[in-house]
Design a protein around this nucleic acid. Sequence first.
DNA 1: TGCATCCGGTCAACCACGTTGACCACCTGC
DNA 2: GCAGGTGGTCAACGTGGTTGACCGGATGCA
Lengths: 166, 166
Amino acid sequence: MTRAAERSEPPVLTAADPEVPMARLLAMAYRHLVVELHERLQARGWHDVRPQYGYVLLACRDQPTTSVEVAALLGVSKQAAAKLAEAMVGAGLVRRTRSDLDARARPLTLTARGRRLLAVVEEVYAELEAGWADAIGRSRVKAVRSGLTDVLVSAYDGALPPVRPI
Amino acid sequence: MTRAAERSEPPVLTAADPEVPMARLLAMAYRHLVVELHERLQARGWHDVRPQYGYVLLACRDQPTTSVEVAALLGVSKQAAAKLAEAMVGAGLVRRTRSDLDARARPLTLTARGRRLLAVVEEVYAELEAGWADAIGRSRVKAVRSGLTDVLVSAYDGALPPVRPI
DNA sequence: TGCATCCGGTCAACCACGTTGACCACCTGC
DNA sequence: GCAGGTGGTCAACGTGGTTGACCGGATGCA
């Protein structure tokens, strides 16, 4: 037993305690999801997957995506986005292509390996959200989702803000 | 108009769209709150306030808190926590004291300036949560809070997990 | 009581990941 | 056709974290 525990009871989370700031709940829940996701990816043999890969894979799924677009998505400088892209190219997840609309651009597209990882991520993701539904019920998960969505819609007028936490 | 916009419609967030991963919603909402909080602190003359200060101030409010406890709270090494504590001491927000229970420990307590900052943070925080209530209604904010809380309670058995995002 | 062990704190070296600034090549609109 | 804007790259650097080694006080047990 630690001194801290001797001095006071360990902090306990009780339902809807207004003392816990919303930001802390969001941070804890986010970290929980991301850590769990990457542990399960590792368990399935996907090592060296960085937290932000998922967002990039998702963006590349629908259309080729440039470094500048990745930068806007994550909320980082274009140089940082280029380094991330470089790492993902090195990991064989995406490939730099050429755009027929703009000779400067080197849009990223998924490789077969990238598509496989994306599929695994989506599978694990579905597991995690199913876990949430087991814990609090499908309707309350939906309430969390819709509440957060509408707050963001109202704050950013429908556009998606950058995704990278502080 | 950018090339990206020419290639496809800009992404738009629609209520409870299951395509947007929960982790992304959490990340965006967290970032939104933290950025907004620090902009408002800056507007009130509090510069150089780092995002994690708030959690440390909150921990120190109730009882003196050691670096090791800060490390556990944030989910970082004790050395990193010590550097953070050092910065907060330098900013005049906390003071290193001595424990009468353990001569090794240098627990942190709030200074008058730290208490003032904490009060401002709580005030701004209340504003932000009021903004959420304006956007989606008090009951839906409560639903988000209680949903996240219960997910975390179920995942960590009531103990608060580390707060620092990835 | 004495000793092995544990634990809070600190120092130092290092590194991951981001930043800013300068620059080139290409696109766009007047 | 040219000015300004934009995608991409190179290089230098800074912040904030890490690991590893260590000291000295606390703790538990023979």
